[in-house]
Design a protein around this nucleic acid. Structure first.
Length: 425
RNA sequence: GGGGGGGUUCCCGAGCGGUCAAAGGGAACAGACUGUAAAUCUGUCGGCGAAGCCUUCGGAGGUUCGAAUCCUCCCCCCCCCA
């Protein structure tokens, strides 16, 4: 994973060309070139920042776009500074207005940070990475410091942000601390003296505030590099953990493979481009093949899924994931690993005639007896491969049983993992 | 500080004394069809061994044979005026 710096071989102009690949917008390119030239001249690597929200510590394909760019910087000899927004996380994110998010405890934040690092280093070189939590500086600020920070920006400028502007226009509430978020993110850049900040296009405003704040603190302003946003597996909304439409880079190979197979056809080129990192002629070839009547889009998607698994594991895992996928979903076979939960049943006396409904619940395949009944009525339950049609069906637990709910949920009921409990007296 | 409008099941949103476990839509889940694609169709979508019963409509009380619906107090949100 570790790559030696190539900055000795590449001159600033060449670096710039590489760094601007796949970038939607860079503010400003000429300043970036100047910074690169100086870095080269003074042999002082640039500090390249990207921030992450600590509330959802699973990095996904969307994050990977930025991470790959960070890695490019590293390969050119620069330093990456990853900011984990623990302080903002402990306050609670105001942008999700519907539910007040539970504030994270310090311990949770620390654990999340650890998870982040592990996942981060699947792509980024740890030797050239600083991971910083912004509580490091925010927790040290006094109210006077906060007022000082607030005094360096104006309401009018904050209200330029389109969502604030819209809410203001529509007379919807904006709480004061929300206005602070861009300032806080921007101050991170001041605190770590960022030369470059990476962000998705929707981060444009916040990143630019960083630039302005740096000027206000008499620091050379950072370059803002905006990267494209990848849509989630639903093909519509931006990939994010909270929407549940994400493919995590630390997920098991079969999950990555399976989730990829569920994306709509229309997203295939985008995933090749932003997920795999394909470009130019190869990407054009993918588009052509998708158009071609000869080609079944499914096969293109299989290739995509294999490549994504290969990226985060290896080709062997990719092949294994594909085989398993074919077996489970195309041939309706069984996955490699089937959970064997310990099962505790109440009110069942005879092991040789256990009612199926509570058994499914105890095995963790359904949430309630009602759900079990529903699935049976809808033909979604199988025992040893046989569809169960009778809600009153009973099974013998004297030997292992294979339970299946829907297409994806499997569990094995093993006799020695089953306990019959007395009904509560 | 004054006036007005709201808080309904995962989300949006109807209901405004019994026929309400609560319309409609979305999401989700299952089934059919498939390529775990899209589109479509069907069904389900609080809990209970399912009969009926229990818990749900911001919170606590109250009126009533009966309350999501009426009253009182409280909490929260939004708008207008100051």
């Amino acid at each position: 994973m570790i790559h030696g710096g190539r900055n000795h071989v590449l001159d600033p102009k060449e670096q710039l060309d590489i760094l601007l690949e796949d970038v939607v917008e860079a503010i400003k390119e000429d300043e970036l070139l100047e910074k690169l030239e100086r870095a080269c001249r003074e042999e002082r690597p640039l500090r390249v920042k990207q921030g992450f929200d600590p509330s959802a510590p699973d990095l996904h394909l969307g994050h990977a776009i930025g991470l790959r760019k960070l890695k490019q910087f590293q390969e050119l000899g620069h330093t990456v500074v990853v900011i984990i927004g623990d302080y903002t996380g402990m306050i609670g994110d105001p942008s999700e207005r519907a539910e007040t998010r539970p504030r994270l405890t310090h311990q949770e934040v620390t654990e999340h940070a650890k998870t982040y690092q592990e996942q981060l280093y699947k792509i980024v070189d740890p030797a050239r990475t600083e991971v910083r939590m912004n509580g490091e500086w925010f927790s040290q600020m006094s109210f006077a410091d906060v007022m000082d920070l607030a005094g360096r920006y104006t309401v009018a400028r904050i209200l330029e942000r389109d969502d604030f502007a819209r809410r203001f226009q529509n007379q919807q509430p904006i709480s004061i601390h929300e206005l602070f978020y861009p300032l806080m993110q921007g101050y991170d850049s001041v605190a770590i003296r960022a030369d470059v900040e990476l962000g998705a296009t929707e981060q444009k405003f916040n990143c630019l505030v960083g630039r302005e704040l740096q000027k206000a603190y008499d620091i050379e302003p950072q370059i803002v590099m905006l990267l494209p946003v990848l849509e989630g597996t639903d093909g519509v909304k931006r990939m994010s953990k909270s929407t549940g439409n994400y493919i995590g880079i630390a997920e098991a190979p079969r999950e990555i493979y399976g989730k990829t197979m569920s994306i709509p056809d229309s997203s295939i080129p985008r995933y090749f481009e932003l997920g795999v990192g394909l470009k130019g002629r190869e990407l054009a070839a993918v588009r052509d093949r998708l158009e071609s009547p000869e080609e079944n889009p499914r096969d293109l998607k299989r290739e995509l899924a294999r490549r994504l698994v290969s990226l985060y594991y290896d080709e062997q895992e990719a092949r294994a994931a594909e085989e398993e996928f074919d077996r489970v979903f195309r041939k309706r076979g069984l996955p490699d690993e089937i959970p064997e939960p310990s099962i505790e049943l109440r009110g069942q006396e005879d092991r040789s005639a256990v009612w199926i409904v509570p058994l499914l619940k105890a095995a963790g395949l359904v949430k309630s007896n009602g759900e079990a009944r529903r699935l049976i009525q809808q033909g979604g339950i199988r025992v040893d491969g046989e569809q169960v049609t009778d809600v009153d069906y009973t099974v013998s637990l004297d030997r292992p049983l294979l339970l299946q709910a829907g297409k994806r949920r499997f569990a094995r009921a093993l006799p020695d993992r089953v306990r019959l409990l007395q009904e509560d007296a």
